[in-house]
Design a protein around this nucleic acid. Structure first.
Lengths: 231, 231
DNA sequence: TTTTTTAATTGTCACAACAACACTTACATT
DNA sequence: AATGTAAGTGTTGTTGTGACAATTAAAAAA
């Protein structure tokens, strides 16, 4: 009888796409599914919405249940809804994404679910449309990073200029002249030089910098135009 | 028994947020609900997902059913999922948005559903969380317009520079120096000057321009930096 | 100790883009 | 012929740009 009988009532999933940066490489966190179907296949961290739960809340809960990671601010990036995207049952999925400093959350990461970091260019086959989700997420990351200085969240408290450049090059799948890059980066007034060097990358060592929290007059324009041409 | 019994199976709606530009003003298309509950209240054009239908498809269908508008490319901008956003029943909604030239679609617009264009600053109370959707949509529009020359889609085939400036000022809720604005706009190589004037706005009349479709080396950088400071 | 090696750091230059600013022009109306 | 109105245009001092190569710090090798 109901007016709404012709309308679907699908399961609603959230999937979490977590980017990290380690050893000069952009990485994505994936887990190996414990459940049938598709047991032992790789996927994003996903789960279904419960009663009285918003998608934002579900995303945080699911991420914690599957990885142990807590207190990570994720942003909604897209919703996937093709009718056959999950062959078993009609399911739509809302994708959330975040950037984290891998080393900072290493301790929290629960390996019970076989969560592993994969280099973005070496991602294994994923279930459903999760590969498309990663692609959409990388694209989103570019646009976001072009407009805001968010990439620093992927680095630790302190970092070197060559490290930041490497990260930008990974994200934008491109390369930049190091003289111009550092000129723009320092011109942004975002960074504060420390009296300490990172010797891991070279004999000379590179000075560490930290985000200058005082500064409220930073110039992101300079980095914007650099990134823009790569969108 | 089912493993999935604790998971919700909500209705899934799509809501369409259509921006237009007319009489130097940015507008939004709204309809008056014909159905209970909330009969006669204003809302975005919304409807539910049907079997085998993706959200993209549903959005196009719903827009056509409620307004007669067809062939409009919409983009998914966000999904709303608070558990009590629809007091009657658990419903999540995927919002789609587009920009159209009002005059171009005027004929198609079916007024059976009392679709009306409202100035963005004079929007009436809307049902559910639709006001929040409009706010999110305006924000999305800014970001999108800052990165790409999409605002021209809101204008007709031909338009004047003062018209474009007015549109940019509406979208970015800001004002720009007309000398600098026109320098940047023309410097973009996006426009081609016509030998014809629009006399409606002034005695002198303003020259019409059209989008130069040949040009493949346009410079959007110039407009980017203008818009960026307003994000 | 000296030399070698490696990557970080720094500098220049010609050119383009920037913000801030005010006057002139075209046209219709009076 | 004078007036009113909005469109259109130009300058300047300053800053940002891309393209380019030499120097420096420090460890490792000779």
């Amino acid at each position: 009888m109901s007016q709404t009988s012709k309308y679907i009532r699908p399961l609603v999933a959230v999937d979490c796409l977590i980017f990290g940066f380690e050893n000069q490489t952009l990485k994505v966190l994936l887990i190996k599914r414990k459940l049938q179907p598709y047991q032992n296949e790789w996927s994003l961290m996903g789960g279904f919405l419960k009663d009285k739960e918003s998608a934002d809340e579900a995303a945080s809960r699911v991420l914690k249940e599957l990885t142990g990671l807590e207190g990570i601010f994720m942003e909604q990036i897209a919703t996937f809804s093709k009718f056959d995207r999950d062959p078993a049952e009609r399911t739509i999925s809302i994708v959330y994404s975040s950037l984290i400093d891998i080393s900072k959350f290493e301790a929290q990461l629960n390996h019970a679910y076989e969560a592993h970091w994969f280099k973005v260019d070496e991602i294994p086959a994923l279930i459903f449309d999760h590969e498309e989700m990663v692609a959409v997420g990388r694209d989103y990351l570019k646009k976001k990073a072009a407009l805001q200085p968010i990439l620093f969240e992927l680095l630790g408290e302190k970092f070197t200029i060559p490290q930041i450049q490497q990260l930008y090059e990974e994200v934008f799948e491109s390369s930049f002249d190091k003289r111009n890059f550092s000129r723009k980066l320092l011109g942004s007034k975002l960074l504060h030089k420390l009296n300490e060097k990172d010797k891991s990358g070279s004999k000379k060592g590179a000075f560490y910098y930290e985000l200058d929290k005082q500064t409220n007059h930073y110039n992101f324009n300079t980095l914007l135009t650099l990134a823009y041409s790569q969108l």
